[in-house]
């Protein structure tokens, strides 16, 4: 799963700390999501999409694993 959180955050000119405060999570969580090390819950995913006023699939891009 890829995401464009960093891009959306840059568009809004927000720091990781500011976004974290808006979403009610820690800055570490934002860092982990942006670097795709942590996949957020569906609730947080929707919360992020709602905050940026976009669809959830605009931020999070599902990439199915290819069968080898």
């Amino acid at each position: 799963m890829k995401n464009k959180l960093k891009i959306f955050r840059a568009i809004k000119n927000l720091t990781q700390e500011q976004l974290a405060t808006h979403l009610g999570v820690s800055r570490q969580t934002i860092i982990a999501i942006e670097s795709s090390r942590y996949l957020p819950s569906i609730t947080l995913g929707f919360k992020i999409a709602h905050f940026f006023k976009v669809k959830i699939e605009d931020i999070f891009i599902y990439q199915p694993k290819e069968n080898k």
């Binding site: 009610g24 999570v25 820690s26 969580t29 942590y38 957020p40 947080l44």
Partner: peptide
């Protein structure tokens, strides 16, 4: 502990 007033979902995970 951190400076927050809650433990967020990543910390719970």
């Amino acid at each position: 502990t951190n400076n927050q007033n809650y433990v967020d979902e990543m910390q719970l995970t």
